[in-house]
């Protein structure tokens, strides 16, 4: 019992020191189980590969440069779409959030188009734009846009009315209020929207690459299916998970926490 407590204490201290340990440790039993099943001979290895097979393929594809290229393609597509989504979404959200008229006019339309999932646009997009970058970018922008707009609106509405009034009584014009009060007040929500948007966008991107892609992680996975290479498919899935984890847990979540907590916007209202 004592030994258990002691090693638990050591684990907690170690994760404090190196947080990555807390991320990796839970996967040890998962990978172990996977390994046991793969090696049990229950399924043929070509049908259900083991972790070592995937690792070997990973290094092979890294060495050949295919994986880095595809990864780069996917990330650039995601970032382009996200950038356009931010540039369109934040001003739109600010407008809808701060104008009663804009809200009345746009909100139902927004909800209508949000209901049409990103992938549901593909058939018509393929006819209009064909199998290419335009179609992919459209879908990513579309996916990223809604969480950003909706969260920005929420953020604007969450800014206490007295804050805008205080700024006006100190001489701020409407534009100045927007810049000095509305935008910073809505920022934690905007970042939450961006975080969600990128998450959805990432998933949508893979789906689109599977259908229209000529490169990228999604394409790699679907191409592997044609060749019957389960190893590459599973490798693709793992890369997706790890990559997103890195982006979300190490970049987006800390930014979200930093803005909200520093200003006390998360704990108090």
């Amino acid at each position: 019992m004592n030994l258990v407590l002691k090693s638990w204490g050591a684990y907690v201290r170690a994760t404090k020191r190196w947080p990555i340990i807390a991320t990796i440790v839970p996967f040890i039993p998962v990978v172990a189980l996977w390994s046991v099943v793969a090696n049990s001979g229950m399924f043929p290895r070509a049908f259900f590969p083991a972790p070592v097979d995937v690792a070997r393929t990973f290094f092979a594809l890294m060495y050949k440069g295919i994986l880095p290229d595809y990864l780069q393609d996917s990330l650039i597509r995601l970032l382009t779409g996200a950038a356009i989504g931010v540039v369109l979404g934040i001003p739109l959200g600010l407008l809808i959030g701060s104008s009663k008229w804009a809200h009345r006019a746009c909100w139902p339309i927004l909800l209508f188009f949000q209901a049409i999932g990103d992938i549901a646009w593909l058939p018509i997009l393929l006819i209009w734009f064909g199998f290419g970058l335009t179609t992919m970018t459209f879908v990513i922008v579309y996916t990223v846009l809604f969480p950003i707009v909706l969260n920005t609106v929420l953020g604007v509405e969450s800014v206490h009315r007295d804050l805008a009034r205080a700024a006006q009584s100190l001489g701020a014009s409407r534009m100045r209020v927007l810049w000095e009060v509305t935008l910073p007040g809505a920022l934690p929500n905007i970042i939450t929207g961006l975080r969600n948007g990128l998450g959805y966008g990432w998933r949508a991107l893979i789906a689109v690459e599977i259908i229209v892609g000529t490169s990228g992680i999604g394409f790699m996975m679907f191409d592997a299916r044609r060749a019957g290479s389960t190893v590459e498919i599973i490798l693709g899935m793992i890369v997706l998970g790890i990559l997103w984890y890195i982006v979300d847990a190490w970049i987006l979540a800390p930014i979200e926490r930093a803005t909200g907590q520093r200003w006390g916007l998360v704990t108090s209202s």
Binding site: H160, R165, A166, S169, E180, W263, G264, L265
Partner: peptide, 13 residues
């Protein structure tokens, strides 16, 4: 016309 609010209305950021 300066205003002091019951809610304080300080800019948190």
């Amino acid at each position: 016309r300066g205003v002091v609010f019951q809610s304080f209305a300080l800019f948190p950021w």
